[in-house]
C-alpha cells in the first residue's frame, strides 16, 4: 500500500489561467496536476498523489479564512498522509497561501505538510516555524530541483524519519534546536571552524545568530521646546523590592512606574535587579542607568517640553528577541496614545 498525498497549487499551475482568474475558488481535481505530475514520478510507488486542490491566489489572499476553511474541509475528507503545497518560488500571494494552508493542515488535522519557496518570499517569515518550507530558486526555472527536494523530504515526513539539520534536508530552518552528542567536544569543534575561517575555507557556525530587521528612521522632533519625552530602560531599574517581580534575566514582562513626583532616583526608593551586569554603581545611584535627575533639570530649564510621567523598565539580558519586540510594540502603542514625541532608551 502506498502513502496518500494531496497537493495544493494556484490557478496558473492548475492550468486555469493567469491573473484574470485569480479569484478562482478552491476546486478538487482527482490525481496529480501540473507540478504534481513530476512529484508523482519522484515518489514512484511509495506515495500516490490522490488529489489536487486548485485555488486562485487572489481568492486565497482576499478571503483567507474562508479559503482556509474550504481547503481544510477537502483535505479532512481525503485523509492524506502528507500535504504538499506549491512550490511558490518568489510569488508573494502564492507563498502566503501555501504557507497558510500547510500550517493550518498540520495544526488542525495533524497531517505533515510541506511547501517550497524562495527565501525572500514573504510567506517564509510568516510560516517557517509552522510547516516545512523547502528552499527553492526565485522562479519556476528551479522547478525540478525544488520538487526533488520536496519529494525526498515529504517521504521522510510521512515515515516519521528523524530529520537532520535544515541545511542538509534542504528546508528553511524553523528555529528548532535539538540536543545530541557529537564525537568531538565544543572547544575542539570551535578551533576547527576557526582554522577553516583563517584558511579562507567554507565554514558553518553551529549557532546561528537571529537576523534582525531594520526600519527607516522615524521623523525627528521639530519643536523640542514643546515635546514630551519618555524614559525607557532595559537596565532593570525598579522600585526597591521589585514589586512586579520582573525577572532578573530572560524577562517575560516589563513594568511601568509613575515618576511624575520625582526629581531623582534615589537608592532608598529604587534599585537594579538586572542579572547581567555589576549592579554596584546602579544601586548607589540609579540615575547612572536612568537619567531622571538630569531630565528634570533640563525640563525645568526649558530645554525640552515635558517629561512623560511614566518610566518603562525591563531587564535586557537573555531576553528573547520575540519578547523584546513585543515589549516594544506594547510600549510604543501606549506612548503613541499618550502623545509622547520622543524616547530616550538606556541599555546596560
Amino acid at each position: 500500500m502506498s502513502y496518500r498525498v494531496v497537493c495544493y497549487i494556484n490557478q496558473f499551475y492548475g492550468g486555469k489561467g493567469g491573473e484574470e482568474v485569480a479569484d478562482f475558488k478552491p476546486e478538487l481535481v482527482e490525481g496529480p496536476v501540473g507540478p504534481g505530475l513530476e512529484l508523482q514520478k519522484l515518489f514512484g510507488d511509495e506515495a500516490r498523489v490522490i488529489g489536487t486542490i486548485i485555488c486562485g491566489d487572489g481568492y486565497y489572499a482576499e478571503h483567507i479564512e474562508k479559503a482556509r476553511a474550504e481547503c481544510l474541509k477537502i483535505v479532512e475528507d481525503l485523509k492524506p498522509d502528507l500535504f504538499v503545497a506549491g512550490p511558490a518560488f518568489n510569488a508573494g500571494r502564492y507563498g502566503v497561501a501555501c504557507g497558510d494552508i500547510c500550517a493550518a493542515i498540520t495544526q488542525s488535522l495533524d497531517i505533515p505538510s510541506l511547501t517550497g519557496m524562495f527565501p525572500e518570499n514573504p510567506g517564509v517569515e510568516l510560516y517557517r516555524a509552522q510547516t516545512f518550507i523547502v528552499k527553492t530558486e526565485g522562479s519556476a526555472r528551479g522547478m525540478k530541483q525544488a520538487l526533488t527536494s520536496m519529494a525526498r523530504l515529504g517521504l521522510k515526513l510521512i515515515k516519521g524519519e528523524l530529520l537532520g539539520p535544515a541545511y542538509e534536508e534542504g528546508y528553511i530552518h524553523r528555529g528548532i534546536r535539538k540536543n545530541f552528542f557529537k564525537d568531538k567536544r565544543g572547544s575542539l569543534r570551535a578551533i576547527d571552524i576557526l582554522l577553516q575561517k583563517i584558511a579562507g575555507q567554507e565554514f558553518r557556525t553551529e549557532y546561528e545568530m537571529p537576523t534582525f530587521k531594520k526600519i527607516p528612521p522615524a521623523p525627528p522632533i521639530k519643536d523640542i521646546k514643546h515635546a514630551t519625552i519618555a524614559l525607557v530602560t532595559s537596565g532593570g531599574i525598579v522600585p526597591r523590592g521589585n514589586p512586579d517581580r520582573l525577572r532578573v534575566s530572560s524577562a517575560e514582562s516589563y513594568a511601568k512606574y509613575d515618576i511624575s513626583g520625582l526629581d531623582d532616583l534615589t537608592p532608598d526608593e529604587f534599585e537594579s535587579i538586572h542579572g547581567g551586569y555589576d549592579r554596584m554603581w546602579a544601586n548607589l545611584d540609579p540615575d547612572v542607568v536612568v537619567p531622571l535627575d538630569v531630565m528634570r533639570e533640563l525640563e525645568r530649564e526649558g530645554v525640552f517640553g515635558k517629561l512623560h510621567p511614566y518610566l518603562y523598565t525591563t531587564t535586557g539580558t537573555g531576553t528573547s528577541v520575540a519578547n523584546a519586540e513585543r515589549f516594544g510594540q506594547e510600549i510604543g502603542r501606549e506612548l503613541k496614545e499618550a502623545g509622547v514625541d520622543g524616547v530616550i532608551l538606556t541599555s546596560t
Binding site: I215, A218, A324, G328, G332, G342, V343, L345, T346, S347
Partner: peptide, 19 residues
C-alpha cells in the same frame, strides 16, 4: 525594543548604551 517602539509609535527613539 527600541526598533519596535519607533516603528509602532512612529516617534524617534535615541538609544544610549555602550555596545
Amino acid at each position: 525594543m527600541t526598533r519596535e517602539i519607533e516603528r509602532v509609535a512612529q516617534i524617534p527613539v535615541a538609544q544610549i548604551a555602550t555596545i
